[in-house]
């Protein structure tokens, strides 16, 4: 018996209709962005009367956009590395040991993402400036992003460790391998795809973040979202922003494809 036979045919049709409608609504704004990147009208008049490639040419030449992309990639890469290390350590500690305050620790890891971004942003802004005396800039963005990225790695690794069990690690130890050798040859290879899925999510989260970033970025550094926000309402730049958006939509297919290939759907999505 197929699973769908457990519901009445009418109900299945209702579900299918709602799903189709939802997908139309999900993709309509994205399609609009794609179409508008060719729309000759600078104010995106609908429907478009004339098409042009000018915006694409302008976007390729935009130094501001290219600099912002570079900053965003560097921030996201560093934040992801920190999140990978700290998230894996926390997941191993919580999965392999029972200790006092374990629940509190797991709550603490979720907290930076469960609390509204504005709270994390202003708390870190205040701490950086008044407590640590740091000047806001590149490094403060990385610290802030890593803080809320830890949870994605943590969740993915935790799920993997839970499924992995400890018998293989015990076998390795019984055969005389040291703690480090066991980690290098047994634990790490089995966690690799979970690390990749968690790392990809962390990277994406950091790459697209704006709320925490505005509070921790200072005046000089511009990540891509900040550049987009600053240019969104400038009539001359809005069409260029549209092109950047299309490129981002297209690029987003790569990480999704990779995580699908490596981790399987249910685990990749457990991240956030």
């Amino acid at each position: 018996m197929t699973p769908s036979a457990t519901m009445s045919p009418g109900f299945r049709i209702v579900l299918r209709t709602i799903t189709c409608l939802a997908l139309v609504v999900i993709y309509a704004p994205l399609m609009l962005v794609v179409i508008n990147s060719f729309n000759a009208s600078q104010t995106f008049a609908w429907p478009p009367t004339d098409l042009t490639l000018d915006w694409w040419r302008k976007a390729v030449d935009s130094q501001g956009a290219r600099d912002a992309v570079q900053v965003s990639v560097e921030v996201a890469a560093l934040a992801t590395v920190v999140a990978l290390v700290l998230g894996t350590m926390a997941a191993m500690a919580l999965q392999r040991y029972r200790f006092f305050g374990r629940d509190a620790v797991s709550l603490l890891i979720i907290l930076p993402i469960a609390l509204p971004g504005i709270v994390t942003g202003i708390a870190l802004n205040n701490a950086f400036r008044t407590v640590f005396g740091l000047e806001l800039g590149f490094i403060t963005i990385v610290i802030a992003h890593a803080t809320f990225c830890i949870v994605t790695v943590f969740n993915n690794v935790l799920a993997r460790l839970r499924r992995m069990g400890i018998s293989l690690e015990e076998a390795s130890a019984d055969l005389g391998a040291s703690t480090f050798t066991t980690f290098r040859l047994v634990t790490f290879p089995m966690m690799r795809s979970a690390l990749l899925a968690g790392g990809l999510l962390a990277f994406a989260l950091s790459f697209d973040e704006i709320i925490v970033t505005t509070f921790t970025a200072g005046a000089r550094e511009q990540t891509l979202p900040i550049w987009i926000f600053n240019n969104l309402f400038r009539p001359n730049q809005a069409p260029v922003v549209n092109v950047v958006a299309v490129v981002l939509i297209l690029l987003s297919i790569i990480p999704i494809w990779v995580s699908q290939k490596l981790a399987g759907a249910s685990e990749g999505l457990a991240g956030r």
């Binding site: 999900i26 979202p225 922003v241 939509i249 999704i256 990749g268």
Partner: peptide
């Protein structure tokens, strides 16, 4: 299909 828009820019 559900995951893809998650990766497109929030602002956009």
């Amino acid at each position: 299909a559900v995951l893809t828009p998650l990766w497109a820019s929030y602002l956009v």
